[in-house]
Design a protein around this nucleic acid. Structure first.
Lengths: 360, 360
DNA sequence: ACAATTTCGGAAAAGGTTTTCTTTGATCGT
DNA sequence: ACGATCAAAGAAAACCTTTTCCGAAATTGT
């Protein structure tokens, strides 16, 4: 101990200048200084300038906590992820952050990793920080229990996850519509025997996309064969295995695959190639998620449904700001997906086109 | 306007209870209430209990902003990502959040997407919020300019990125050591003609890993052939292409590939299979990043160097807390990587083992 | 029973800002 | 030149806690 001149314990950094320092330097009272800096009140121009100059010289930056205390608006919101930040959450977060930052709102990031106790701790902490709003994301499979915010006191939005709280707003991609886009595209490019390989049936998204698939086939007068609908894991290995099943019997072999995600699609595409089938000439493939790492690395590159997560994040930010402003929004809102067409499903000529539908 | 009973503009939610309410309900002064709730001062047990009961009944939660104002410690830190949150940043963030949350510190997330102006705005905002510390992450390629925190006033750590600020602390994975691990493993399993396929030479990581590769070969008395070192992109396509180059001339064909990331490794592995070469019998493959999506989906699953990003994040949190506590830490700290052995390099029998070296 | 000590609880300042209300001094009208 | 009006700046309250200092009551010792 005692090496150097700083006392050794605690962060004894120089205190930042306060408005009191600014006022002193400008030779005015703190009230006047405040007015000058906020362009409010009625002051002589010369006085304003003097105060502003003093503030700049001191590198003054108003203490947001003191301001918030006064305004009882913290200008912060919490983002609570139930499962850990996954690949899907990123683009949402990014857009959310951008949107909120544009309104001067900062984000507290919390991650509860599916531990209810940690979730509660985080929530307590956020409540203590007097966040103006809360955004909850979770793994999509489960309809998560409502977050217990005391006294209905704060706007809450669930993004990419759903809650059973009827007063909350849930923002989700339109899985049904995404499936419709994919299947319509396959039909439009001449496919008639379209199979659907997807993930575990417990996921609501799986059900919804399947429904979109079935509905679209029906509307086109095509049969939805039971043996063309395969549930499994979200993995490439499952994609390969599913192709083996589908093509075991040449009689019922499909001429197109609509896959529940890009990993399945890529696995399927690999398996097709190894069977000597050409994508897209023999079999067209469309994936879901438009995850570039998968979709672009596949051979040929995969057509895929894009959930427009960036837009979802932006929408979440906008809704949250509206709710903080006093609007009451609730219910489930599903935002449209788009289809990105790449060679895996393209009739020669088309490539990398984006289609988009309305909410369906 | 005027529909319903709420005034219509602004978030007119019920105010949270303050300590003043608690004090009133317990029939004590606010000072006493504070002492009771913080287990400080000298109070009768009965009084404490009464106050605590009142607090619970009201759902009282102390206003962290008021506390911080008083203590001049905001119990928050900022995380500023220069490029947008990438795949590598996630595990770091996750561990960081966990570590800091354990100390009651919350995280402001900001993303500047390589825009210096946005970076400055975010920094201003964070400074206004009186964060206790700042953590900066960036794309690793460039040694980023130092963040301009006025007056050396606050602890700053660069994680997974490096700054030219000699006073800052930079936390990075030990790329050199990671490469050493990989190449030693390949040598230990009997390989003698080891090639290195990697990304663009501008990345410092590429240089360091290459150095580790060269050093290890030299130590083993093996030659580092220039035609066995290939720079390209970080993609599967480049991995495939590189294999074509390497195996064009059978005379110089390698018996092992050390790849700069898992995507390259996977592409290489695919290309080998398509050439009729078996992994690992004919050619062993080791990747870098241990990105499960790639490493596990490859056939066979890829051995890979793990940068232990989770540990890196945890270390960052711990260092930051130490610095906030008054310690001055600086310089560049490189944390060890591990090697995860999977079938792509395993001599039959070994599988999914982790090795780890000391800082090298 | 009285002074000395302890125990308990209250009052008030501090932390940094905004805003409302006053006050001061100047300008205007007649 | 005098009261009325207006502009400009200051004083103080409020936001919510914590903490230091004090006073009052209760306890102890003799």
């Amino acid at each position: 101990m005692g090496s150097g001149e700083d006392s050794g314990v605690g962060a004894d950094y120089p205190q930042r200048a306060t408005i009191r320092d600014v006022a002193a330097r400008a030779g005015v009272s703190i009230g006047t200084a405040s007015k000058a800096l906020n362009a409010s009140g009625s002051l002589r121009q010369e006085t304003r300038d003097r105060v502003v100059a003093a503030a700049n010289e001191l590198g003054f930056r108003p203490n947001a906590m003191a301001q918030s205390l006064h305004r009882s608006r913290s200008m912060t919101v919490g983002v609570l992820t139930t499962d850990s930040f996954g690949r899907f959450i990123f683009p949402i977060l990014e857009a959310l952050e951008e949107t909120l930052a544009g309104h001067g709102i900062a984000i507290f990031m919390c991650n509860a990793t599916d531990d209810p106790e940690r979730e509660q701790q985080h929530l307590d902490q956020l409540l203590g920080k007097r966040i103006d709003g809360l955004l909850v994301t979770a793994r999509r499979m489960d309809r998560r229990p409502a977050i217990a915010v005391p006294g209905k006191s704060m706007p809450v939005i669930y993004v990419f996850s759903q809650s059973d709280d009827p007063d909350a707003l849930c923002l989700l991609p339109d899985d049904h519509g995404g499936a419709v886009l994919a299947v319509e595209h396959l039909i439009a490019t001449g496919r008639r025997r379209i199979a659907h390989i997807t993930g575990p049936a417990e996921f609501e998204a799986v059900t919804l996309r399947h429904q979109g698939y079935v509905d679209t086939l029906a509307r086109a007068g095509l049969p939805a064969l039971p043996e063309h609908y395969l549930n499994g894991l979200w993995s490439e290995a499952w994609g390969r295995e599913a192709v083996d099943q589908l093509f075991a019997d040449a009689a019922t072999a499909p001429d197109a695959l609509f896959c529940g995600n890009d990993q399945i699609a890529r696995g399927a595409s690999d398996a097709l190639r190894e069977r000597g089938l050409t994508v897209p000439q023999d079999v067209a493939v469309v994936g879901f998620d438009n995850w570039d790492v998968m979709a672009l690395a596949a051979r040929p590159p995969l057509s895929s449904v894009d959930m427009n997560l960036h837009r979802l994040g932006r929408a979440a930010g906008e809704r949250l700001i509206a709710m903080i402003g006093g609007e009451r929004i609730r219910g489930v809102e599903r935002l449209p997906c788009s289809l990105v067409v790449r060679p895996s499903s393209a009739p020669a000529g088309h490539t990398d086109t984006t289609q988009q539908n309305q909410n369906s």
